[in-house]
Design a protein around this nucleic acid. Structure first.
Length: 273
DNA sequence: AAGCACACCTGCTAGC
DNA sequence: TGCTAGCAGGTGTGCT
């Protein structure tokens, strides 16, 4: 579900609505939600600490606590962070962890597929060693992109989704970026002329920034929502993703659907070469 | 290095 | 109405 724009939207919401609050109690009911450590130890570590900042790298979200502790969150396919009033009726189904805040509200971790997870980590964040630069904040210039792609022989879609090349792009935005750049999903880096590489570089920045501005993509299954449970609107701007057989918004010919690396992928054979 | 299959889960939908 | 197969935004491992 959530890719960089969705995680960034949640991060900004946390900064606006949760920063400065203190965790006064915590509960972990999901058996898989806190799996890198003892859930009891996790509860003990977060309790009594104040949120001092929220950061993101790719699809990883971090909450900085006073005293140097840091909580990592990965939403994977179906995770949500929801801010709810303490007296909000019943708990949402698949709520696996709750952090009660001194503001009277609670931060709920909801995740039907239970792939997502929470864990406490250190400042060194060794789990991010294998992850490349953030696709939005650390994209850099065209030459940096060229260096990150050079020597790679996979197709562009596969490379964009490879988190060690660039962190944050998933199935939706890789298709949208390549449509914007006018490039086929299976093109390889060594086949790109300089102007094509430049188009790719521009497309990455534009597509991700526009999606963040639109507060992320909420698809038909309603999985992604922001901290207050509201949908994003970036899906209205999708040019190809999930638009198989519908007319291309640029040329009117039907959008094609193929499998790339086992993932449903969309492109326009006329607009992308 | 790359490209598979597979694993982790639940929920929804299309088709019979 | 009810069953089943297939599919879904992500990531990690292990095998060619």
């Amino acid at each position: 579900m959530p890719e960089l724009p969705e995680v960034e939207t949640v991060r900004r919401d946390l900064e606006r609505y949760v920063l400065g609050t203190t965790v006064v109690g915590a509960e972990v009911t999901g058996t898989r939600t806190v799996r890198r450590q003892d859930p009891v130890a996790f509860i003990d570590e977060v309790s009594g600490h104040r949120f001092e900042g929220f950061s993101r790298r790719g699809k990883y979200l971090f909450a900085q606590f006073d005293g140097g502790k840091r909580m990592a969150v990965h939403l994977r396919m179906s995770g949500q962070l929801l801010l709810r009033g303490r007296h909000d009726e019943l708990r949402v189904k698949h709520t696996h962890a709750v952090l009660d805040l001194d503001s009277g509200e609670s931060l709920h971790f909801v995740d039907p597929r239970t792939f997502g997870e929470l864990w406490m980590t250190t400042d060194s964040v060794e789990e991010l060693n294998h992850i490349g630069p953030d696709a939005l904040d650390e994209l850099g210039d065209v030459d940096r992109l060229r260096r990150r792609l050079s020597g790679r022989r996979s197709g562009l879609k596969t490379l964009l989704m490879n988190q060690s090349v660039l962190a944050g792009i998933g199935n939706i935005y890789s298709d949208e970026i390549l449509f914007r750049a006018g490039l086929r999903l299976t093109r390889t880096p060594d086949s790109l002329a300089d102007p094509e590489l430049a188009q790719l570089h521009v497309a990455i920045g534009e597509v991700l920034r526009e999606a963040v501005q639109a507060r992320g993509s909420s698809l038909a299954d309603g999985q992604y929502v922001d901290l207050h449970g509201r949908s994003g609107t970036a899906q209205r701007q999708h040019r190809v993703y999930a638009r198989g057989t519908q007319p291309c918004r640029r040329c009117d010919r039907p959008v094609d659907r193929i499998k790339v690396g086992g993932r449903s992928s969309f492109f326009c054979a006329n607009c992308q070469s």
